[in-house]
């Protein structure tokens, strides 16, 4: 049987774990709130750009900001956004297996974001074109290298973890072009027309349209990465909540055990004293 001092020490250690997990839980919760604000802010920015774009465009072609003369690879670029590792649970495995169900080496090229996903693809002997680290920062995410790749391909598919709620994170698959257009439709329509008759353009309206398309793709990609990070923060929050609950239970159990052990030692001593008295009286 453990001594009460040992149990008291264990209880103290467990209380430290409760404090730590509680702090991590608060951190994850704060990150979730910050990231949500950023997603909303970037959505407002996107909506404004879309309003200008929709007033400029006369057709529904979306060219990802590429020029008419740019050569296009007749393949689909697949981008998978996974975690860097740790506390991510099985969601990355599910994401990779969902992606591979559709994967055809002749038709697709893969870009993987996040070390966890890259590791899994290597284990499955699936070759990917490029690997990027998941950005540590939550703002000003540099998606330029991805945009350069996207511009070269006919179409782009993105697989990522989506944040639905603190308890629910889902795997999503989007076609980038339609995702930008869907987001644009949600931004609403503006009947006004921007043309060279009513506006001065520098350098030209075509360059402005190309720039707007690039910017909107960049924002959509940044939002996908942010959404992925949000899902990962939520996953961490869940893990920390579970750890805190388990450690709180352990502290309570240890405290009961400590009291029982102390009482049992006191009872043992009392018994010894009584037995001593009885033995003394008998003699």
């Amino acid at each position: 049987m453990k001594r009460p001092q040992e149990i008291a020490l264990e209880e103290l250690n467990m209380s430290t774990i409760v404090g730590l997990t509680s702090a991590f839980e608060s951190l994850a919760s704060m990150k979730i709130s910050q990231t949500k604000t950023q997603v909303l802010q970037s959505q407002a920015f996107f909506n404004e750009l879309w309003h200008i774009y929709s007033q400029l465009r006369v057709d529904s072609l979306f060219r990802f900001g590429r020029g008419k003369s740019d050569n296009v690879v007749d393949k689909t670029l697949v981008i998978a956004v996974t975690a860097e590792g740790g506390f991510s649970g099985d969601i990355d495995q599910r994401l990779i297996s969902t992606m591979l169900q559709e994967y055809d080496a002749k038709k697709h090229d893969i870009i993987i974001i996040g070390h966890h996903g890259a590791l899994q693809l290597s284990q499955l002997h699936v070759q990917y074109l490029k690997y990027y680290k998941l950005p540590e920062k939550d703002d000003n995410i540099n998606v330029q290298p991805l945009i350069q790749m996207i511009k070269q391909y006919q179409s782009t598919l993105v697989y990522y973890q989506s944040y639905e709620s603190l308890t629910v994170q889902e795997i999503k698959r989007i076609e980038l072009k339609s995702a930008v257009q869907t987001a644009g439709k949600q931004a609403g329509k503006n009947d006004e027309i921007i043309s060279e008759l009513t506006y001065i353009f520098e350098p030209s309206s075509f360059d402005v349209i190309a720039h707007l398309e690039r910017s909107m793709v960049e924002i959509t990609l940044s939002q996908v990465i942010l959404d992925s990070k949000l899902a990962q923060y939520a996953s961490r929050f869940r893990a920390m909540t579970a750890a805190r609950e388990r450690s709180t239970e352990s502290v309570q159990e240890l405290h009961i055990l400590y009291n029982r052990t102390k009482r049992s030692i006191a009872d043992e001593r009392l018994k010894e004293i009584l037995n001593g008295h009885r033995a003394g009286a008998a003699t």
Binding site: I194, Y199, I200, F201, E202, P203, S205, D207, V208, H211
Partner: peptide, 19 residues
């Protein structure tokens, strides 16, 4: 600054879009 060089925009400027 844009492609053509530095520029200023003052109040009541004409409609304008530039990179």
């Amino acid at each position: 600054e844009n492609e053509t060089g530095p520029f200023d925009i003052l109040p009541r400027h004409h409609n304008f879009i530039t990179l």
